[in-house]
């Protein structure tokens, strides 16, 4: 109701209409590939093959989704991706909170040097270490295991940096009074710092989840068994079939993109905070 009244009060000027038209056109062009994938996922293969290429399905069908469920273990892929991504998030939250706490509240010699060593990991591209890391996985027998997919990513310099910034917002007086009350430093971290830093922790969690869920190279390398594939590698396998079934591929694409898009809508504010945190590689 209030929205309608407010709208009436401010009549649409021609410039404003133009701005909306421009925005709508731009938004549709940017989102077009994704919208097209959604549309194609409801088309039969024969409809996709018609000329000119269709944009909207004439007879929407759920057949492609049924084929995905029947031909690849997509439920298992989703489960694998969720297990691995959740494990990485939990690992990162633990390691990064501990480290960020040391870098913000604890005073010790060599702290700046150690912080620099931490940040230096941001300059090392994962792909530059991928060969020895692969060999480590073979030696440990971690090929085709959840630990192989998750453990290498359980520490995060970027997340530590973000959490440290959040921890430094907490008033020093809280720390001083906790010390006077005789609380141990770990008790203070657990009962004060963590509960007060929920927004920063959420940013790290969403980041960790998205980047792990969307990985391709590492899971491709260290999984061979079909049942250990993650969503990205599992669905991409459909592309290497003899004759590509585009409707099926697009249905698979939509099924594995939905969780990340939902996360984007739910956690947009946290994601933007992470991306704009400054000159740190995202």
């Amino acid at each position: 109701m209030t929205a309608i009244i407010a709208m009436r009060r401010r009549p649409l000027r021609p410039g404003r209409v133009g701005a909306y038209v421009l925005l709508a056109v731009a938004a549709i062009i940017v989102a077009f590939p994704l919208l097209l994938a959604l549309s194609y996922s409801f088309m039969s293969e024969s409809e996709i093959a018609t000329f000119p290429p269709p944009v909207l399905p004439a007879n929407p069908t759920l057949g492609n989704y049924r084929t995905v469920l029947d031909s690849i273990p997509i439920g298992r892929y989703l489960l694998n991706s969720f297990i691995v991504s959740t494990a990485v998030v939990i690992g990162q939250l633990i390691t990064a909170s501990l480290a960020a706490y040391a870098f913000s509240f604890l005073a010790f010699r060599g702290r700046s040097l150690l912080f620099f060593v931490f940040l230096s990991t941001l300059m090392i591209p994962w792909e530059a270490t991928i060969i020895p890391n692969y060999m480590t996985m073979v030696q440990l027998g971690w090929i085709d295991t959840y630990q192989g997919l998750a453990v290498p990513f359980m520490a995060t310099a970027f997340g530590t940096f973000l959490l440290r910034q959040g921890f430094m917002q907490i008033p020093r007086e809280l720390w001083d009074s906790a010390r006077i009350d005789g609380a141990s430093s770990f008790h203070f971290l657990r009962t004060m710092v963590i509960p007060l830093s929920r927004p920063a922790l959420a940013t790290v969690a969403i980041y960790g989840f998205l980047s792990t869920y969307n990985q391709y190279f590492w899971p491709l390398l260290i999984t061979n068994q079909t049942l250990m594939r993650t969503t990205q590698v599992g669905v991409a396998q459909l592309r290497f079939e003899e004759s590509a079934r585009w409707g099926v591929i697009m249905a698979g694409v939509i099924m594995i993109a939905v969780p990340t898009l939902a996360l984007l809508v739910a956690g947009q504010r946290q994601l933007i905070r992470g991306l704009t945190a400054g000159a740190v590689k995202g």
Binding site: P33, L34, L36, A37, L210, Y213, N214, Y216, Q232, V233, V235, A236, R239, I249, M250, V253, I256, A257, T260, L261, L263, L264, L271, L275
Partner: peptide, 11 residues
């Protein structure tokens, strides 16, 4: 930002 490289490439 939420779309993986694999999903984008397949589309």
């Amino acid at each position: 930002i939420a779309i993986s490289a694999a999903v984008g490439s397949l589309i």
